[in-house]
Design a protein around this nucleic acid. Structure first.
Ligand SMILES: [Mn+2]
Ligand SMILES: [Mn+2]
Ligand SMILES: [Zn+2]
Ligand SMILES: [Zn+2]
Lengths: 137, 137
DNA sequence: ACGATAACAGTAATCTTTACTGAATTATGG
DNA sequence: CCATAATTCAGTAAAGATTACTGTTATCGT
């Protein structure tokens, strides 16, 4: 009788490696495109499944950012993010900011506050130049 | 030739009124259920369209919270939110906290930082008691 | 190498959101 | 009031994102 064990498959290894390589905080679909160059037969479901697995096991970060599509980060060191209000792109804040204190925070209907972070809104360079060029949105 | 004008239709009024009445930060779909009790023929598309319209015109807040489904708030006064990490429910933080300063924040690939807020993670009472009762998730 | 089974590819289903279309409302002026 | 044009509506289709299912493959302790 074997314990529940975790296997490092080729797919999982490549997904993790490519996510750690990029600084772009990709969506599952974007990472799928990247990984497919090395594993042409991988399926999108596999990418989703492994991103969930890796996030749950703490090897990557699932970004709790706004927007409809989830994004992931291979860098699990403590740092903040900026999100482009136009396109959803995410960037890393250089200066390390302390996590906001959680003690004494009261919320009706909530029994515990377990963490906090600062979320920045910004405009990425791509969106900025696109707007300045006159094209709407 | 008439200018673009904004009409307060019955549908829009009911959506706004019900959103202001609740403290639950509902999703479009949840608000759809609520509004349908007064307007049984309203469609989900109308709810989405009007929530977007009302948010763009500043009458309500579109919550920039994590999770797959967008949520809305009829209370546009400055306040913070906690998000249940298990179910996505959102609660209001009682004590007013200042917005984090934005000056001097540098982000590679971003041309401007336009705002910031603190995001709290928590566990709502419903999820807490469900877990304590032993039922997983 | 073998065998149990975790993980796979492929695909269907679900959930969320947006886009489109013709009909109904609304403001406005004669 | 009624005509007219602009706007918003309901209904529905389509798109986009994520999860679930199923039979097959491949990993890893032995
Ligand atoms: Mn990052
Ligand atoms: Mn609120
Ligand atoms: Zn952008
Ligand atoms: Zn909860």
């Amino acid at each position: 009788m074997a314990q529940a064990q975790t296997r490092m498959t080729r797919q999982r290894a490549v997904i993790l490696e490519e996510l750690r390589k990029t600084k772009s905080h990709p969506t599952a679909d974007e990472l799928y495109s990247i990984v497919r160059e090395r594993l042409p037969h991988i399926s999108l479901g596999t990418v989703y499944r492994n991103l969930d697995f890796l996030a749950d096991s703490g090897e990557i970060r699932r970004l709790e950012a706004a927007g409809s599509t989830k994004r992931f980060d291979g860098d699990i060191s403590w740092h903040q993010h900026v999100r482009c209000v136009h396109c959803g792109r995410i960037g890393d804040v250089m200066q390390p900011l302390a996590a906001p204190p959680v003690d004494g925070i009261q919320v009706c209907g909530f029994s515990a506050i377990v963490g906090a972070r600062i979320e920045f809104d910004g405009v990425c360079e791509a969106c900025a130049s696109r707007r300045e060029a006159g094209q709407q949105n």
